[in-house]
Amino acid sequence: MNEAKLDFLKELANIGTGHATTALSQMLSGKLFQLVVPEARLIPFNEAANYVGGLEQVIVGIFIVISGDVGGHMAFLLPYDSAMVLVRLLTGDESGEMNELALSALQELGNIMITSYLNALAKMTQLLMAPSIPGIAVDMAGAVWESVLAGAQVVNEVTVIRTEFFADGKAIEGNIIFLPDQADFEKIARILGLGEM
């Protein structure tokens, strides 16, 4: 991974997070989302499992298949507590239960987050990228993570864009996982003049 590629991921993180924040603010009818500069990292496969909290901690994962000029997968992972803050803000439901309404709100939120990054990337590269309907899982972090990695057939390293924002005075953590098919990552790199991946 050279500097140019990391810079590209940072730029993608900034632009994508910008888009996502705007979209989320609209979804939350103007409730302010203050954004911390997102961090883009490349994580070796062996460390990936331990990245989002403890393996047994419950997290929410939204997973999307990408097709078009670029094939691959994208996921949005967030800790359970962060997810429940967002559910309360999105639905007004104060019960703290992960019910059907909560799941569907989170699915839509994940969809918006992911398509924001996808649109940013599509604009940067002029490539067509179409997202599938989102899948959602609420389960042990380890189980969600490995299912995302296995679903995308990732065996070497994984790009994680970590964002933090605030809503209602509470810190919310979100992780966007970017998993393009290897050949298509090279296509992106070529278009952006980043050299060999």
């Binding site: 496969f45 062996n46 990936a48 499992a49 331990n50 403890g54 393996l55 047994e56 389960d139 042990m140 972090a141 380890g142 189980a143 969600v144 993570w145 490995e146 299912s147 296995a150 679903g151």
Partner: peptide
């Protein structure tokens, strides 16, 4: 036992994997 690992014990002890999804 994390993804991809193999661990072993003899006589006593516990071998644990946390967070099995598709694995």
């Amino acid at each position: 036992v994390n993804m991809g690992q193999i661990c072993s014990l003899k006589t006593e002890g516990i071998l644990t994997t946390v967070g099995l999804g598709s694995c």
